[in-house]
Amino acid sequence: KAKLLVLLYAFVATDADTICIGYHANNSTDTVDTILEKNVAVTHSVNLLEDSHNGKLCKLKGIAPLQLGKCNITGWLLGNPECDSLLPARSWSYIVETPNSENGACYPGDLIDYEELREQLSSVSSLERFEIFPKESSWPNHTFNGVTVSCSHRGKSSFYRNLLWLTKKGDSYPKLTNSYVNNKGKEVLVLWGVHHPSSSDEQQSLYSNGNAYVSVASSNYNRRFTPEIAARPKVRDQHGRMNYYWTLLEPGDTIIFEATGNLIAPWYAFALSRGFESGIITSNASMHECNTKCQTPQGAINSNLPFQNIHPVTIGECPKYVRSTKLRMVTGLRNIPSIQYRGLFGAIAGFIEGGWTGMIDGWYGYHHQNEQGSGYAADQKSTQNAINGITNKVNSVIEKMNTQFTAVGKEFNNLEKRMENLNKKVDDGFLDIWTYNAELLVLLENERTLDFHDLNVKNLYEKVKSQLKNNAKEIGNGCFEFYHKCDNECMESVRNGTYDYPKYSEESKLNR
């Protein structure tokens, strides 16, 4: 008799109507990190870190770059004969040098303040090359056809396309004075040089004057150069050297050249137009028929994500570079809930034993079982409120962090190594801060989002509990077992918050 009662009780308990509160689960393989956990499985997430590029040089917003090819900045601007293909260059979106560009200054020497000139050019998007001192009329008392084997072109001695090597005419090199007034309405880049012979005999042979000088002056520039005559090792078949100089001439300003020898005179100059998204990159990537809004030396990035880990040097509207390998923000729920887990921000989770793959029309909802059958029903209101809140948060985070910009490298010469090392340390410090901030932001927001979901499920549970009161009992896994019969209409009233407690209280009292 006792065995019969136990079996009867078990049958009745199993047959009781139930309603459970749960949440969506799926077959997603997404994982995120939080402050407290690593690799948390979630139903949905968004990636904030771009880690792919196309490996190509592309047009930037429809404008092609200027590819210097086998030449570098120095060779292009001075007019190395091997860089003749660059003479027609007028406009570009950015400038590309190759790491091993070999054609710079063909006659050995240095372009002074080269690093600063590169910085200036990094904001130039177009130029006009014009004859600042016409070759045939500007130097009537001097020979202007100086050439050298060091600047050979097609097997013949030649010289820079933008400079003139002035030497004596006959047996004399009379003092020369020439000036140019900038009437271009924009900055003009003027380049010139000073020749330093290897011996007094060479000085006399070329310029006749043993104590020659070169003077260059404008409103913002004033220097006097004296040739340094000295024996030097042979470089590119030359014992002599040429140093090259430049200045930016403001609109309306005048530049005056005065010399008694050794002047490498300007022939062509450049009127410059600035462009905020221009820059110089060093890259071996090849040019393709493609378009982008962000270019790196590795390749083009076409992404609206706020961060990238491809390269710190970028041109155009680019994500911020960070050292992170993963920045994924959760938008959905835990896919593998932890039992009795309390989140960092106070939300209680884990009283549900598992997510439901059968509930596909919402994030949170119900599963019921009664004599009429069983089924899932999503709670659309709480789901939609959660979707709206999380979507707004993700968009806000992306908008705040998605300050796209150009980031170019800084140039230092060989004598500025300590400054370069200090600059690298400062840049590394800023990069570490950006990386830390980005990672911390994602970790915190992921923790908040998961706790937010847990709290929403808990609130749904409490909503049902407050309606049923003692007409049902909690069975410990997020479910309630009714003390009365609850048909589909009754189940719907529980879900929509209109459950009639008094209607079922007498039946429940008897069954309790």
Score class of each variant (00 low, 15 high):
221 Y>E: 05
126 S>G: 13
166 L>T: 10
9 Y>F: 15
187 E>G: 04
272 L>F: 12
195 H>Y: 05
64 A>N: 13
201 D>K: 06
28 S>E: 14
279 G>S: 12
40 V>H: 07
224 R>L: 14
281 I>H: 02
99 P>H: 14
140 P>G: 12
246 W>K: 04
269 A>C: 03
240 G>L: 02
90 R>E: 14
136 E>H: 10
56 K>D: 05
227 P>S: 14
186 K>Y: 01
253 D>R: 00
280 I>F: 13
60 L>E: 10
218 S>Y: 09
105 A>H: 04
266 P>K: 06
266 P>I: 05
237 D>V: 02
95 I>A: 01
173 Y>C: 08
143 T>W: 02
272 L>D: 02
5 L>V: 03
168 K>S: 13
112 I>L: 12
152 S>M: 05
72 N>T: 14
76 W>I: 10
147 V>M: 11
254 T>S: 14
186 K>A: 09
170 G>D: 12
189 L>E: 09
152 S>W: 01
209 N>M: 13
239 H>S: 10
46 V>A: 06
38 K>C: 09
274 R>G: 04
2 A>R: 02
267 W>R: 10
180 Y>E: 03
53 H>P: 12
108 P>W: 13
180 Y>M: 09
243 N>L: 11
174 P>I: 11
118 R>Y: 15
4 L>F: 15
244 Y>F: 13
238 Q>I: 08
43 T>I: 03
39 N>D: 08
115 E>F: 08
207 Y>E: 05
223 R>W: 09
68 L>Y: 03
231 A>Y: 14
162 N>M: 04
53 H>K: 07
121 L>C: 02
224 R>V: 10
3 K>M: 08
183 N>W: 02
109 G>F: 09
139 W>T: 04
175 K>L: 14
145 N>H: 12
109 G>S: 06
177 T>H: 12
82 E>I: 07
161 R>Y: 08
136 E>T: 12
280 I>K: 04
200 S>P: 06
79 G>L: 02
58 C>I: 10
229 I>N: 11
230 A>N: 08
259 A>L: 12
106 C>I: 06
6 V>N: 09
220 N>L: 15
237 D>P: 00
203 Q>C: 01
26 N>D: 07
191 L>D: 00
183 N>Y: 12
260 T>F: 14
68 L>W: 09
55 G>S: 08
49 L>E: 05
239 H>C: 04
133 F>Q: 03
270 F>T: 04
173 Y>N: 08
83 C>I: 01
188 V>I: 15
74 T>V: 15
243 N>H: 15
59 K>I: 01
61 K>S: 04
105 A>C: 11
56 K>W: 12
42 V>W: 11
194 V>S: 01
190 V>M: 07
206 L>K: 10
182 N>T: 06
6 V>K: 12
134 P>S: 12
260 T>H: 07
139 W>V: 07
34 T>W: 02
114 Y>N: 09
267 W>H: 15
173 Y>P: 00
218 S>M: 09
217 A>G: 03
32 V>Q: 06
163 L>P: 03
210 G>P: 15
152 S>N: 14
126 S>Y: 11
14 T>S: 11
14 T>M: 14
249 L>R: 00
71 C>L: 04
185 G>H: 09
136 E>R: 01
176 L>V: 15
37 E>Q: 11
246 W>V: 01
90 R>H: 14
60 L>F: 06
207 Y>K: 05
189 L>S: 03
224 R>F: 14
116 E>S: 03
154 R>F: 06
51 D>R: 01
161 R>L: 00
75 G>T: 02
236 R>P: 00
120 Q>A: 07
171 D>N: 12
265 A>R: 01
209 N>P: 07
257 F>C: 01
84 D>M: 06
69 G>C: 03
69 G>S: 10
62 G>T: 08
87 L>C: 00
276 F>K: 12
70 K>I: 13
81 P>K: 07
34 T>H: 08
260 T>W: 04
38 K>S: 02
98 T>I: 02
212 A>R: 12
120 Q>D: 07
50 E>H: 04
240 G>E: 12
53 H>G: 04
37 E>G: 10
22 G>L: 05
235 V>W: 01
155 G>W: 09
88 P>E: 11
252 G>K: 09
123 S>C: 05
67 Q>Y: 11
157 S>C: 01
230 A>F: 13
185 G>K: 14
201 D>T: 07
21 I>F: 05
112 I>D: 11
181 V>S: 08
67 Q>I: 13
174 P>Y: 12
101 S>Q: 15
178 N>F: 14
279 G>M: 07
100 N>C: 07
11 F>R: 11
100 N>K: 08
235 V>R: 10
31 T>Q: 06
109 G>Y: 09
179 S>T: 13
74 T>N: 10
11 F>W: 12
257 F>K: 03
193 G>D: 07
139 W>P: 00
9 Y>Q: 07
83 C>P: 06
261 G>Y: 01
264 I>A: 12
76 W>Q: 03
5 L>F: 14
101 S>F: 03
36 L>F: 10
205 S>I: 11
240 G>I: 04
97 E>R: 03
118 R>S: 05
18 T>D: 00
188 V>F: 05
229 I>H: 12
16 A>R: 03
210 G>A: 15
140 P>M: 12
211 N>V: 13
46 V>K: 12
49 L>F: 05
14 T>W: 09
88 P>Y: 14
38 K>E: 09
99 P>W: 08
150 S>G: 07
23 Y>D: 05
183 N>M: 10
48 L>P: 13
68 L>K: 02
230 A>K: 04
132 I>C: 09
3 K>R: 14
231 A>T: 09
278 S>H: 13
168 K>T: 14
28 S>V: 07
25 A>S: 12
89 A>T: 15
129 R>P: 12
260 T>Y: 06
101 S>M: 06
33 D>P: 11
216 V>H: 11
20 C>K: 11
194 V>M: 05
80 N>G: 04
14 T>C: 15
172 S>Q: 06
272 L>I: 14
65 P>W: 09
75 G>N: 06
92 W>I: 01
4 L>R: 02
234 K>C: 09
138 S>P: 00
128 E>A: 06
97 E>N: 03
243 N>M: 12
171 D>G: 06
70 K>A: 08
143 T>I: 02
203 Q>P: 01
236 R>L: 15
133 F>P: 00
11 F>A: 09
42 V>C: 10
137 S>D: 02
217 A>I: 11
6 V>L: 15
235 V>H: 07
162 N>K: 05
53 H>F: 00
10 A>V: 15
122 S>M: 07
275 G>K: 11
95 I>P: 03
21 I>D: 14
197 P>G: 07
39 N>Q: 08
222 N>V: 14
15 D>G: 02
64 A>H: 14
71 C>K: 09
275 G>L: 08
72 N>K: 09
142 H>E: 03
250 E>I: 09
273 S>G: 05
89 A>D: 12
124 V>A: 14
153 H>P: 05
112 I>E: 04
64 A>M: 14
242 M>N: 10
103 N>Q: 13
102 E>G: 11
147 V>S: 14
24 H>M: 11
36 L>D: 14
276 F>D: 14
115 E>V: 05
34 T>K: 06
166 L>W: 04
91 S>G: 12
235 V>Y: 05
3 K>S: 11
188 V>K: 01
167 T>G: 13
40 V>F: 07
239 H>G: 10
5 L>D: 00
119 E>W: 10
228 E>I: 05
123 S>Q: 10
233 P>F: 12
19 I>R: 02
208 S>T: 13
28 S>Q: 10
71 C>T: 04
183 N>G: 09
10 A>K: 05
120 Q>I: 03
36 L>I: 09
256 I>H: 09
144 F>R: 03
164 L>V: 15
189 L>W: 07
116 E>R: 02
48 L>F: 09
276 F>E: 07
103 N>R: 05
240 G>C: 06
215 S>E: 00
106 C>F: 05
147 V>D: 09
34 T>A: 08
202 E>F: 02
194 V>A: 11
159 F>R: 04
135 K>P: 11
207 Y>C: 06
199 S>H: 10
223 R>P: 00
56 K>Q: 08
280 I>W: 05
112 I>H: 14
119 E>I: 03
53 H>T: 15
32 V>A: 05
92 W>H: 04
242 M>I: 13
20 C>F: 05
32 V>F: 02
199 S>R: 06
12 V>N: 05
211 N>H: 12
17 D>H: 06
68 L>E: 06
39 N>L: 03
213 Y>W: 06
5 L>G: 02
28 S>N: 10
157 S>I: 08
240 G>D: 08
247 T>I: 15
282 T>F: 09
183 N>V: 14
225 F>Q: 12
236 R>D: 05
